[in-house]
């Protein structure tokens, strides 16, 4: 895989985050779309099993690299995720089925249910297609084709088609503030991006970078 486009997208994402910090983006109604415009289709429709290289960074704990394995059944909104150290030791394993969350094993401090639920919410946000049909489609204030879904846990999930094929995904809370923002980078294999960058806002800000190492399609 070529490194330069990733680097460029990384810089673009950083600029986008810095711009967001300068002027906090909040939820705004969309403008009517251009004729023929369609929603981005980045989430896989069929079941898959994937392995990712994961980097998690925060101001508090610095940056660490992990291996992530996931079994995903989009139609059933089911996700089974395993987080391993770079040496392959399983440090966290959990499953989500239609919003019901279960820790299978976790080393402290990852066994904290709030942390674990947040981690699985991040994985679901990045890999699971929002349920149902979009509730709103149109152009955002940057003129990007955008689609929005109601999130099951409240708030809104938004996808915007960026130029050069990347897709931006945002999650707004019920107050209309962005709580998660991700950039999915092309090329896409049946909707699964080769790399993703996630920024999570909140009391503890952190970043997650995913690089796809391997994918197996079940169907």
């Amino acid at each position: 895989m070529k490194k330069t486009p990733h680097l460029l997208w990384g810089i673009a994402f950083l600029v986008s985050i810095l711009t967001s910090c300068a002027a906090v983006v909040t939820y705004e109604p969309l403008k009517p779309p251009s004729p023929g415009a369609v929603c981005p289709t980045i989430f896989p429709e069929t079941d898959f099993r994937a392995v990712h290289r994961i980097e998690i960074s925060s101001a508090r704990s610095g940056k660490s690299a992990f291996i992530g394995a996931v079994k995903c059944e989009p139609d059933k909104s089911t996700l089974h995720a395993v987080l391993m150290s770079a040496e392959g030791m399983v440090i966290f394993e959990a499953a989500v089925k239609k919003g019901a969350f279960r820790i299978i094993s976790a080393f402290p401090p990852l066994d904290d249910s709030v942390f674990a639920r947040g981690l699985m919410a991040d994985v679901s946000f990045l890999l699971l297609k929002p349920a149902g049909m979009p509730m709103e489609t149109g152009l955002d204030r940057q003129g990007l084709m955008t689609c929005r879904w109601s999130a099951a846990a409240g708030g809104v999930i938004e996808q915007s088609m960026m130029r050069a094929g990347a897709v931006r995904i945002r999650r707004y809370n019920q107050a209309g503030r962005i709580t998660k923002e991700a950039l999915a980078l092309p090329p896409f294999d049946r909707g699964l991006p080769v790399a993703m960058h996630l920024k999570v806002s909140g009391p503890v800000k952190y970043f997650i970078d995913l690089k796809l190492l391997e994918v197996k399609w079940v169907n």
Binding site: R49, I67, A69, H80, V82, E87, G88, V90, E214, K216
Partner: peptide
């Protein structure tokens, strides 16, 4: 050569 066999994966992860 290390092989990680996970229940959720059909093939092991080879390191």
């Amino acid at each position: 050569v290390q092989e990680k066999h996970l229940k959720i994966l059909a093939n092991p992860i080879t390191s």
